[in-house]
């Protein structure tokens, strides 16, 4: 514990504030803090506060009615479903990609890593569009799908696909640097001691990456539940059927049901806050185990 506190002091802002060479003059400090916190308040804090204030503007009953509305309920279910499919898929992918990239040397590794990041640099609208081009009525598989009476676009599968696309890199990009940094020595030690590949993965690798994994899952889930643009393109906006929560917010807003729109939005904002809280918790936990390991 003592080592922990010492490392905190070494790391923290006191290191800068207590040394004359790195201490800013009072006037500078006041100015920087005013600008920083003012900017923070207007651009980050205010939008958050407004969501809840607007949601409760017409009283708690209106708020509650908006949430128990059958269309809202179905939107919540669809959002949960999409995340429940997209997150595990990308979890398996993330672990698999990180294993291949971090544990082996092969040509084209850097290129592969860049390709994995690709969905982050593609506009969500284009993420929706590409599936329309593949599965839509005029798309590659459109005629075949129509013959077999399968709907992908303007239906749930399209929403799931778009969600998988936009959350694709989250877990992989969390795990790749983590596993690269941990190296393969522990895995090699396990193999030398007679462990099989699966035993090595479950007993040695997984416990070592669990915090990074959880971190990635939290971020992946937040994006999966909150995605708007991509899902909007492939959804078709059928109330009670192909509406996710963010799409439901849009519909209510465009119908001038502002209080109801903000009520549903407030659920998503709560999700965002929960995400941030969990994320901080994971950072704190993993950071703590990290510094404990560094201690001796």
């Amino acid at each position: 514990m003592a080592g922990n506190a010492a490392s905190l002091a070494r790391k923290g802002e006191t290191r800068f504030e207590h040394r004359s060479a790195t201490r800013d003059p009072l006037i500078v400090r006041v100015l920087v803090l005013t600008v920083a916190l003012g900017f923070f308040a207007i651009f980050l804090l205010l939008p958050l506060v407004v969501v809840f204030a607007e949601a409760l503007r017409k009283g708690f009953e209106t708020y509650w009615a908006a949430l128990v509305d059958p269309d809202a309920q179905s939107a919540i279910r669809l959002t949960l479903l999409a995340a429940a499919i997209a997150v595990p898929l990308n979890l398996v992918f993330g672990v698999s990609a990180a294993w291949a990239i971090a544990k082996y040397q092969f040509r084209g590794k850097a290129f592969l890593t860049t390709l994995i990041d690709l969905p982050f640099s593609v506009s969500p609208v284009i993420a929706g569009l590409i599936y329309v081009l593949v599965f839509g009525a005029q798309g590659w598989f459109g005629p075949w799908l129509r013959e077999n009476d399968i709907r992908v676009i303007f239906a749930v599968p399209g929403i799931v696909l778009a969600t998988v696309f936009v959350t694709f890199p989250f877990i992989a990009r969390e795990l790749i640097p983590l596993m690269e940094q941990q190296g393969s020595e522990e895995e090699e030690a396990a193999i030398v001691l007679g462990a099989s590949g699966w035993q090595t993965f479950w007993r040695v690798t997984l416990p070592n990456i669990k915090w990074g994994l959880l971190y990635g899952v939290i971020l992946c889930n937040a994006r999966a539940m909150g995605e708007f643009g991509a899902v909007s393109v492939v959804s078709g906006h059928v109330r009670g059927e192909t509406n996710t929560m963010p799409l439901h917010v849009e519909i209510l807003y465009n119908e001038y049901q502002f209080a109801a729109a903000f009520a549903v939005a407030s659920l998503l904002a709560l999700l965002a806050l929960l995400t941030i809280a969990l994320k901080s918790l994971v950072e704190w936990r993993s950071g703590r185990t990290q510094s404990r390991e560094d201690a001796p």
């Binding site: 020595e185 522990e186 090699e188 030690a189 396990a190 001691l193 007679g194 462990a195 099989s196 035993q199 007993r203 040695v204 416990p207 070592n208 390991e293």
Partner: peptide
């Protein structure tokens, strides 16, 4: 191993027992 490669999430006992447990 040069840097020992002890399994960081296991106790000393479990580290030594590992080779026996994975048989």
């Amino acid at each position: 191993f040069q840097h020992y490669a002890l399994f960081r999430h296991m106790s000393v006992f479990e580290n030594v027992a590992f080779g026996l447990r994975v048989k």
